[in-house]
């Protein structure tokens, strides 16, 4: 018998889960909950969990650091997490609460830049508009400050990784 502890981010939230093998079954412990099940691999993308008289299915696929999992029609994004390095790749990056690297929540095309470098901005002020799939999304600043750097231009295609704009607290 052995126990393994794993750290994940589920939809951006850190979660710790321990896995223990017990005869033919697995015991998963997470946040005070225990799930004891036999696990069957149906295919590269499908697992079956048998617990008591019930059978639960999970479909999953790995894409780089992330694992996409579908359970009963609900989708989750699970990524590996190393607590010592802090949260990564999720939303805007703040460094020491004094500056903000604003990112787009989804890939899209920059249709408007509402500020210029050196401009003072207030919390929740719209910085950039990114259009994706015929929908306009206003990207706002989460802090008061000054726009120190604009990394994009109107018409640019952006992803959710690259910072659009940097705002520094004064």
């Amino acid at each position: 018998m052995s126990v393994t502890e794993l750290d994940f981010l589920v939809d951006g939230e850190p979660r710790k889960i321990s896995v223990e093998t017990k005869d033919k079954a697995f015991v998963f412990r997470e946040g005070g909950c225990v799930l004891e099940a036999e696990v069957r691999r149906i295919s590269a993308n499908e697992l079956q969990f048998r617990l008591g008289g019930r059978t639960l299915r999970a479909h999953l696929v790995r894409d780089g650091e992330r694992t996409f999992v579908s359970v009963d029609g609900r989708d989750f994004v699970v990524s590996e997490f190393r607590p010592e390095t802090g949260r990564r790749g999720e939303g805007d990056e703040k460094t020491a609460e004094t500056s903000l690297r604003v990112k787009s929540p989804m890939p899209g095309k920059v249709t408007n830049i509402a500020v210029s470098e050196g401009e003072e901005v207030r919390k929740n002020q719209t910085l950039v508009i990114v259009e994706a799939m015929k929908m306009e999304n206003e990207i706002k600043t989460a802090i008061d400050g000054v726009v120190t750097k604009i990394h994009v231009a109107v018409g640019d295609l952006v992803d959710s990784e690259r910072p659009l704009i940097e705002v520094e607290k004064q």
Binding site: T4, L35, A58, S70, F76
Partner: peptide, 20 residues
Amino acid sequence: EGEEDGRRLALAAAAYEALA
């Protein structure tokens, strides 16, 4: 309801997969 159960199973599936 159901969301948290789903999330937990997703986590278990990801853990199984990572170990595998």
